[in-house]
Amino acid sequence: MGDDLIEAMAEAVAYMDGKTKGLVTHEVLVPDDVDVAAIRKGLGLTRSAFCRRFGLDIRAVQEWEQKRRRPDRAARALMLVIKHNPQAVEAALHDAA
């Protein structure tokens, strides 16, 4: 196990130095835009119910849906998780409470 940790640290240092040849990296791509209204409607929720269910600010969701503001990267990622697995978000929020 110690050898694995040493190898992993060496790879991390190489990556930080810009030496990525031979390394496997996983880049997560968050889209530039998400259709918040479509995600909410796909779940059959009103805006207020959507916000209560997922702990979101109703004003922010309204602004996103009306395209007056764009969700930041973290919010866009959260919207995708809600779209694909709303139960996971609910479970995480329930466990945190």
Rank of each mutant, 00 (worst) to 15 (best):
I6F: 14
D4K: 14
I39P: 00
R68Y: 11
L5F: 12
G42W: 08
D35L: 02
R53S: 07
I39G: 01
A75W: 05
R70I: 08
A96I: 13
A97G: 15
M79S: 04
V13M: 09
D72P: 05
D57P: 09
D72V: 06
D35Q: 10
G22L: 11
E90N: 00
F54Q: 04
V13R: 14
G2L: 12
Q66D: 09
E11V: 05
P31Q: 02
A75R: 06
E65K: 04
A96E: 10
I6K: 15
D32C: 03
E65T: 08
T46D: 10
L5G: 14
S48L: 10
E63K: 07
H84D: 02
I58G: 11
P86F: 03
T20K: 12
P31F: 02
G2C: 10
A60D: 12
R59W: 12
E7P: 03
L5M: 14
S48V: 12
I82D: 02
R76Q: 04
G44P: 05
M1N: 07
D4L: 15
I39M: 03
A10V: 15
F54M: 04
H84Y: 06
L93V: 02
G22K: 05
V61S: 05
A97W: 11
Q66C: 10
A38I: 08
V24H: 10
A88W: 02
A10L: 14
R76M: 02
H84R: 10
V30G: 07
K67P: 05
L45K: 13
R52K: 12
D17F: 05
A10F: 12
E7C: 08
W64G: 01
K83G: 03
E11K: 14
D17I: 14
R40D: 04
R68F: 06
A92H: 04
K19E: 14
L29T: 12
G2D: 10
S48Q: 12
E90W: 01
V28F: 09
A14T: 04
D57G: 03
R59F: 10
L80W: 07
Q62G: 13
I39L: 04
G2W: 09
C51N: 09
V24R: 15
R69D: 07
R69M: 08
Q62F: 14
I82C: 11
V34G: 00
A38L: 07
Q62L: 14
D57V: 06
Y15Q: 07
L43C: 04
V13G: 05
R47C: 09
